[in-house]
């Protein structure tokens, strides 16, 4: 029993080290976070003028999620590229930890970055698009943002680990990610629109995201060993 317990604590701590390492590296330059945030906001500005400023709730929720998804792709692309550029991936791979630790570490790091971008973008969206609901229902919104970003990060992390080894790299990730993430995108947009303007029922959408999150955290965890093995 004690051995098992010790291992578990070790696992979590190892995951934490990887997240902390990425966070420290990011704090030094802030280049990734800044680009993701600016990209998301610029996308919203573009959406605003594409729809002539008349965005009903459903469209606004959609625009929000598309901006967040595109911004996430920027972050996901960098998450393994920066390891490869500086040759750090070899160091990570020979570190005395399971390969899945790298997956969970990278996953949590990506989720954190994406979520931070969304959190900071929310008040601005509320001001720009006159949606006071953002302030009256912060927890519901944060909840759906976490659930949706969880899926984007879970599936995006393993795809990013794959595409970093390809010739096309950054070009390939969105092509592989977007069709896979479609159900989560539909569901997240529906739920977000419901939070802004309750209508109908969203239980099934929440269930769908839940199932998706569970499947696509377990399967990449099982398959990650095959992706990073040299």
């Amino acid at each position: 029993m004690e051995v098992g317990k010790g291992k578990r604590a070790g696992f979590l701590r190892q995951v934490f080290y990887i997240v902390a390492k990425d966070f420290r590296a990011e704090l030094r330059t802030k280049e990734l976070f800044n680009s993701m945030f600016l990209f998301a906001m610029l996308a919203l500005v573009i959406f605003n003028f594409s729809f002539a400023g008349k965005m009903p709730v459903r469209v606004l929720s959609g625009a929000m999620w598309v901006s967040f998804l595109f911004a996430s792709v920027l972050g996901l692309n960098r998450s393994f590229v920066k390891e490869h550029e500086k040759g750090c991936i070899e160091g990570l791979l020979i570190a005395p930890c399971e390969r899945s630790v790298i997956y969970f570490g990278k996953f949590l790091g990506n989720l954190l970055f994406i979520f931070l971008v969304e959190l900071i973008a929310l008040p601005l969206i509320s001001i720009f698009f006159s949606r006071s609901e953002i302030f009256s229902k912060p927890f519901e919104l944060a909840g759906i943002l976490v659930l949706g970003s969880f899926a984007i990060s879970a599936i995006g992390t393993i795809l990013s680990a794959i595409t970093v080894n390809t010739r096309t790299r950054e070009l390939l990730l969105p092509i592989l990610l977007f069709p896979l993430i479609l159900p989560v995108l539909i569901a997240s947009v529906e739920v977000t629109a419901y939070i802004f303007q309750p209508k109908g029922s969203i239980i099934q959408w929440l269930r769908l995201i839940g199932i998706y999150d569970i499947i696509f955290i377990i399967v990449p965890y099982l398959l990650f060993d095959y992706v990073v093995e040299e």
């Binding site: 399967v219 398959l223 095959y226 992706v227």
Partner: peptide, 11 residues
């Protein structure tokens, strides 16, 4: 082959 297999399963 490995990458394709992983993506084939996920897809």
């Amino acid at each position: 082959a490995r990458f394709a297999a992983v993506f084939g399963i996920i897809a």
